[in-house]
Nucleic acid binder design. Structure first.
Lengths: 171, 171
DNA sequence: GACGATACGGAACGCACGCCCCGGTTGGCA
DNA sequence: TGCCAACCGGGGCGTGCGTTCCGTATCGTC
């Protein structure tokens, strides 16, 4: 690969990282190109599609999340809640995480599966109420990320979600 | 107003109600027109803008929600939770509610204000933890609606949110 | 230092959508 | 029943965005 090509590829990636993080997947590709100081055509020389560019920016981070969810931590309940906390922290800082786990992809499916595993163990340990399904948990997580983007206090939100997930207190 | 005009106006409103409810504010206006069996021009003869049509469909419902939030119910805590429950029920059935309270409008602001009032009273009665702000509550509600659209169990979700909102249990 | 391959920039295309306009039609009053 | 105003349908315009194409500039080799 030519030197200028490599340089431009990096400039595009840097711009994409910044803009996807601040505005999410909806930033026009032209804006990314302009911010990188290149033409749109150049972006497409390095990434076949906008999707591909987006995944180049987010895949590693999502992958890390999946692995941290798949790795067996100590206490099952704490593991689930810690994971949700990590998710919340990351999503509070970078808007693209929510998009990355919403857009259909193999990675997204793996994340959901890993979440299911965490949930199952937490429920088996009695740390989470038994009537929560994986689908519920995934939906709850997406709602949590949405709340974050609406300006909710991340720490407070996490407390609400974790305390709400714990065994019910109804008679 | 001519009879056929009134008839078409109703057909448009009916189609809009159905499609906004099932697909949200993002349905193309042409689709609404086609579903009503009229041309797009006819829609614009009765409603100056897509926004106006949307509000014609949702305003009454949102207004009812605002009033039910502004009316002083019995127990402050129960009033807040009942309102969130009503919100969840409505949003689970009709997708447009979330859009209606997200798009900037005077009604949206009144809803937020009413929510603030409910929160304040619930906190004064000790039914909700004191460190929740109105902004947090609004964000939490939007997240809840998002979770609903992702397929979460409405009843379960409501339990999680209400139990999470109650006073913290940490040492 | 010249030449071929490679990469660049940006104009242009296709598409979807909100919105407008106009020729034709239809309703209801005289 | 005839006439005119009101109304209809749908084609068309402007915009924004993802994507492609091509003439031109640049890199790296001989």
């Amino acid at each position: 690969m030519r030197a200028d090509a490599a340089r431009n590829r990096e400039k595009v990636l840097a711009a994409a990282r910044e803009l996807f993080a601040s505005k999410g997947i909806d930033v026009p590709l032209d804006e990314i190109a302009a911010h990188a100081g290149v033409g749109p055509g150049t972006v497409y020389r390095h990434f076949p599609t906008k999707q591909a560019l987006f995944q180049a920016v987010t895949d590693a981070r999502v992958s890390a999340m999946v692995e941290s969810a798949a790795a067996p931590a100590g206490d099952p309940g704490a593991a689930l809640f810690a994971f949700l906390g990590r998710m919340a922290d990351e999503a509070a800082a970078k808007r693209d995480l929510s998009d990355a786990i919403t857009v259909p992809s193999e990675l997204r499916d793996r994340l959901h599966a890993a979440l299911g595993g965490l949930l199952e163990r937490a429920q088996a340990a009695g740390a989470v109420r038994a009537d929560v399904t994986t689908k519920d948990l995934v939906a709850l997580m997406k709602g949590m990320l949405q709340s974050l983007h609406e300006g909710a206090n991340p720490a407070l939100l996490l407390e609400i979600v974790t305390s709400g997930l714990q065994s019910s207190r109804k008679p």
